[in-house]
Amino acid sequence: MNTKTPAAPPVQKAAKAAEPRLPNPGSKKLFRTIEPYIWIAPSVILMAVFILAPILSVFQRSLNKVSRTGQLRGFNNFENFTKVLKSPTFTLVLKNTIVWTIAVVVISTVLGFILALILNNEFKGRKVARAIVVFPWATTLVIQASAWNFIINTDYGTLNTLLMKLHLISAPVNWTPDPAAYFAWEIACGIFVTIPFVCFCVLSGLQSIDVSYYEAATVDGAGYFQKLFSITLPLVKSSLTVSTVLNIIYVFNSFPIIWTMTKGDPASRTDTLVTYLYKLAFYNSKPGEAAAVSVIGFIILLMCASVYMIYTLRKGDGDL
């Protein structure tokens, strides 16, 4: 008796071969799990190579004795930090940095906010005015600082030339008689180049405010300043907060303006932490102490960023 199963006809074999294979549910679920990490992997790798690795290297150098050629000579028991903190120059530079950062950030924020309120109104030539405001921000800081140096020059500066032509002064004025005056001009330059950033941050927040809020306030008899403090400021507060935090970071780390105008001279009277550590590393051949100054600056900025993060998280919890 033949018990063999008859072979399937060729038509049935072709039909089975043509049937689509269903994907494995397990592999699909696994891909969905790891897919976000695949997309963010390039960014994480770039951050690790170009941000995290240099930060770790600076911390390592700050805790070691470093030769003039950059070779690590072993752990020196926080000697670099001790030398930096005991130096009277560091105290002066830290005070300059605080004055520089607070003055530029506060004044540019106030002026940028006022300018944003003006540019938010409808008037003829508003687009041209907005384009002009961008120029100081779009131009490199080295060019801006060089232009300001030319403006305030005693012998051939445009400021003296203009005032003499207007018969407001009879002879050229020395606008930088001492380091404090030069430092004030550097602060003025920093304010000038920072205003556009604040202005456009606030302007983006102003344009997102619904006009109906102001219409309702007008119906209730609210004046300009009541609308400003009750509607405008609360609704652009987030934009102001972001611009302020970013400005603190940018201004604190600003190098070109100080270096182009004075190089921190005379005797570090106009130095900030960034120019001071640059001198320590490349002029005085003290890379270990320069790394210690870098770490101190990093800690200061980390504290500022932490304050912002705590404020943001608390605000989010309150909204919930």
Rank of each mutant, 00 (worst) to 15 (best):
I114R: 01
K86D: 14
V105E: 04
V134L: 15
I107P: 00
A217Q: 10
K237E: 04
L162Q: 04
S285F: 15
P256A: 12
L85G: 12
F90H: 06
N153H: 13
R269L: 10
A147W: 04
L163N: 06
A292T: 00
L280C: 05
A217E: 10
R21E: 12
G157H: 06
K16I: 15
G318R: 13
N2A: 10
I143M: 12
I34M: 07
V128R: 07
I152C: 03
N64C: 00
V236S: 01
K279R: 14
A291Q: 02
N149V: 04
T161P: 00
I169G: 07
V274L: 09
N64G: 03
T158W: 09
P234H: 03
I98Q: 05
M1L: 10
V211Y: 06
G157P: 07
N77T: 09
I169W: 13
T5D: 11
T3R: 10
K86W: 02
E215D: 13
D271I: 01
A8Q: 12
E79L: 13
R73A: 09
A18V: 05
D265M: 10
L22N: 04
N247R: 13
S57W: 00
T5G: 07
L163Y: 06
F183A: 08
L30V: 08
V106S: 14
K279E: 10
A147M: 15
T89Q: 12
N96Y: 01
I296F: 08
T241S: 12
S208I: 03
L63H: 03
K65C: 03
L228G: 01
A103H: 01
L240R: 03
Y213H: 15
L233G: 02
T218Y: 05
G264K: 04
L168C: 08
G288N: 05
K286F: 00
F150P: 01
N76H: 05
T312A: 12
T158R: 07
A131Q: 10
L277Y: 03
L302P: 00
S146M: 11
F183W: 05
I98W: 03
I209T: 10
I231M: 06
P196I: 11
I132R: 10
D319I: 06
Y182I: 05
I107F: 08
F183L: 06
I38E: 04
V173M: 13
T101Y: 01
I152Q: 00
I249Y: 04
T97W: 02
F282I: 11
T140K: 09
A103R: 00
P88L: 06
I51W: 13
L111R: 11
K65P: 00
Y214W: 07
L166Y: 08
G190Y: 11
A147E: 04
N121K: 15
P179H: 07
